[in-house]
Amino acid sequence: MGVLSRCGVVLLLASGPALAGPGSESRWGLRWNAGPGCIQAAPLARAVEERLGRTVFGPEPEYLVDGVLERGGPSGWKARLSLVDVRGNVLGSREVSTREEACSAIEPRLLLVMALMIDPTAALSGPASTSPAPASPPVQEPPPEPSPPESPRPRPEAPGPRMGGRANTLAATVSAGAGFGVVPGLAGTVWFVPGEWTWLVRMSLYPYESYTKDGGRLLLVSTGAETGVCPVSVGEGAWSVSGCATAGFSLVFAYSQGYEQGRMEPLLRGDLGLRARLERRLTHGTALQVGLGAGYGWLRPTVRLLKPDGTAEDLGLGLPVQGSVDVGVSFLGP
Rank of each mutant, 00 (worst) to 15 (best):
S233I: 01
Y206C: 03
P207M: 04
G235E: 01
L205K: 00
W199C: 12
G243I: 06
L251G: 08
S233V: 03
Y259P: 15
C244V: 06
E236A: 11
W199Q: 13
V229C: 06
G195L: 11
Q261Y: 14
P207I: 04
T227I: 07
S256F: 04
W191K: 03
K213Q: 11
A247S: 10
Y255T: 15
K213G: 04
A245Q: 01
Q257P: 05
Y259A: 15
A254Y: 01
R217L: 10
P207Y: 02
A225Q: 05
E260Y: 13
A254V: 08
L220Y: 01
R217G: 09
V221Q: 07
V252L: 12
G258I: 15
A247D: 04
G216E: 01
P194T: 11
S233D: 07
E209V: 06
T198C: 14
Y259K: 14
G228A: 04
F249V: 14
G248L: 00
S242R: 15
G237Y: 02
V252A: 10
C230D: 02
G188D: 08
S250Y: 13
R217N: 11
Q261M: 15
V190G: 13
Q261A: 15
L219I: 09
T227K: 03
G228M: 06
V252P: 01
Y208W: 09
A225V: 12
T227Y: 09
T212E: 13
P194W: 06
S250E: 11
Y206E: 09
L218Q: 00
G215D: 08
W239L: 10
T198Y: 06
T223Y: 07
Y211D: 05
V234W: 10
V221R: 06
V232S: 12
R202F: 00
L251Y: 11
G243V: 11
V221A: 03
V221H: 02
S240Q: 08
D214Q: 12
Y255A: 15
E196T: 14
E236P: 01
E196L: 08
G188I: 05
W199D: 09
V201N: 04
P231V: 14
A245P: 00
E226K: 04
G237A: 01
S222F: 02
L220N: 01
Q257Y: 14
V232N: 12
G216Q: 02
Y259D: 15
T198E: 13
S222N: 09
V193H: 11
L219S: 14
L219W: 07
L205G: 03
Q261C: 15
